[in-house]
């Protein structure tokens, strides 16, 4: 299975947001954000789009398939 890389932590740092704040902003739990960040949980398209919309960037800037 392909691994999904993400740059959520980078964008959070740029926006000075904690995992909890991001979680509240998009309506999920903090555990969900932390497990997405470490690659343990693959988010749904809706969650991915919500994160991208919050940071005002295309979804591909945040999520990408890891190179083999």
């Amino acid at each position: 299975m392909s691994k999904l890389d993400n740059r959520i932590r980078v964008y959070r740092a740029e926006h000075r947001m904690s995992q909890g704040e991001l979680a509240v902003a998009i309506g999920v739990s903090r555990k969900t954000i932390s497990t997405i960040e470490v690659g343990k949980f693959v988010p749904s398209t809706v969650i991915a789009l919500k994160i991208a919309r919050l940071f005002e960037v295309p979804v591909e800037d945040i999520f990408s398939l890891a190179e083999d």
């Binding site: 309506g27 999920v28 739990s29 555990k31 969900t32 497990t35 749904s44 969650i47 919500k50």
Partner: peptide, 12 residues
């Protein structure tokens, strides 16, 4: 409710 997404890590 402010939870729009019924899914999350723990639900899964």
């Amino acid at each position: 409710s402010t939870c729009d997404e019924p899914e999350g890590f723990l639900t899964s």
